[in-house]
Simulated scan of single mutants.
Amino acid sequence: MASQQKLQKARARLMMEAPYFGEIASGLRLAADEDLPTFRSEREALRYNPSWLAECSVAQIETVLAAAAMHRVLGHEERGVRRHDRLWQLATDYAVNAMLRANGFDLPELMRYDPRFQGMYAEEIYAELRQSMTIQESQEEGSEAPPPPQREDEHGREDRRHTQKGSGKSPSPEVSEMQEAAEELERARLERIFEKMRRREELPEGLERLVPRYFARRIDWREELRRYLGGLYKSAYRFSPPSLKHLYRGYALPSLHSEALEIVIAVDSSGSVDEEMLGDFFAEVESLMEQFDDYRIELLVADMKVRSHRSYGPGEILERKIEGGGATDFRPVFEWIERELLRPTLLLYFTDAAGSFPAEAPPYEVIWVLSREAEVPFGERIVLCRE
């Protein structure tokens, strides 16, 4: 009972004091296990020894919950397949615990911490631990001393190779589909929490370096772009022109008017964009033109200045006219739009993001379709993933 009361109190405090960790921990399944010496993180579950937990302070239990949450976020169990189990567990513990320490959590003695691993991925830490182990084995080669005994880590796991547990039989298609659906829902939940806390500027210190490799920056970018543009290409009720159907009754109703997709697309033709990347950019522009029945696209090709401009409507063939090769400066595109166009609905900019940005965000939406992971000062970003 004491452990349950402490768990509930620790969860509530974690939600108030560290909401990112708290929201993720609220989705963890808690399971008591008297066979464990302390606790263990297993995918969506936190298994713990209730007797040990009853001896912990509420602050220490907060740390345990936050650690389990981060192991879940970073998918450490899935990423550890075919790795030396004890070394991988040590590496993941060092990665998580260093981040918790940087965010002010009080680490109990059982939780390993080494400041030299601050801000490092588990894979990076694992490589260092493997190298250290190899050097040690090399130094001990030829010695008749017995090998070191099997040891348990802070979670009570014995040294072994990490393997997938199971009966060896493949799950049925129905079970596999259910598992995939559940995992997809969980990924979506974690992504929503991440984005919500990012907007509130409440992400933990050091998290943004670790998380983008595993979150929505690597989504199906085409589906995301289609979803976004589909929201612009919609039907809307308008009074001009009105529906004539009920004029004889003395009133006019708004008519259903189908809007065209009207956007500006800019393609980066600077020297840092190679021919393959330019080909990818233009191929995606063609794909967009094929998806919509009615559109108006203002296509700009630019490096440090706007090199060409052409308007496209339905049925027109995209001309792959490429001029440029100089330095990258995004400001001329925004200046051209301000000078030549009424305020557009959207600017879609295909680029590697290696250039000079405007000092301020424009009064319209911007989506950066990036050839690589990169930061942008404003607008949304979608990373183009080559298959």
Rank of each mutant, 00 (worst) to 15 (best):
R83S: 09
G119L: 06
R72V: 07
T134G: 03
A122Y: 00
H84L: 11
A91Y: 00
V96T: 15
S132R: 11
V73I: 08
E124L: 09
E128N: 03
A102C: 10
A95C: 15
A91D: 04
Q136F: 01
H71P: 08
E109W: 09
E123M: 09
F105D: 10
D85F: 13
E123Y: 04
V73Q: 06
R82I: 05
D114P: 05
G104L: 06
E128I: 10
R72P: 01
L74K: 04
R72Y: 03
G75N: 05
L110G: 12
R72A: 10
Y126G: 13
G75A: 06
S138H: 03
R116M: 05
D114F: 07
A127D: 02
M133D: 10
S138G: 14
R82N: 13
R79E: 02
P115N: 06
E123P: 03
E109T: 15
L110V: 15
T134Y: 06
D93Y: 07
L110M: 14
R82Q: 10
H71D: 13
Q131S: 14
R116W: 00
R101G: 04
Y126F: 15
L129H: 02
Q136E: 07
F117A: 09
P108T: 07
E109Q: 15
R83C: 10
S138V: 03
L100K: 05
L87S: 07
E137Y: 05
F105P: 08
L87E: 04
L90Q: 13
A95W: 00
A95T: 07
D85H: 14
L110Q: 12
M120V: 09
D85I: 12
Q131H: 15
E77D: 05
V73D: 05
G75I: 00
R101T: 06
M120R: 15
L74P: 02
A91W: 00
F105K: 09
V96S: 11
R130K: 11
Q131R: 14
R101Y: 07
S132F: 01
W88F: 12
V81R: 00
A95F: 00
L110C: 14
P108G: 08
L87F: 04
T134W: 05
Y121M: 15
E123L: 11
L110I: 14
T134E: 14
I135K: 07
R72G: 06
Y126N: 08
Q136L: 05
V73M: 09
D85Q: 15
H71S: 12
I135V: 14
E124Y: 02
P115S: 11
I125W: 01
R86G: 02
W88I: 14
E124G: 15
F105W: 07
N97Q: 06
E77Y: 00
T92H: 04
Q118E: 11
H84Y: 04
M111G: 07
R79T: 00
R116L: 03
Y94M: 13
W88Y: 10
L110S: 14
R72W: 08
A98N: 08
S132L: 08
L107M: 09
E128Q: 12
S132A: 11
N103C: 12
M120F: 09
M133N: 07
H76T: 15
E128V: 12
D85N: 13
M120Q: 14
L74V: 10
A98W: 00
I135N: 09
V81D: 01
M120P: 06
L129F: 01
S132P: 00
E124H: 02
A102L: 11
A95V: 06
A102Q: 11
P108V: 12
E78Y: 01
F105A: 11
L107A: 12
F105V: 13
P115C: 11
T134V: 08
L100Q: 02
S132C: 05
G104H: 03
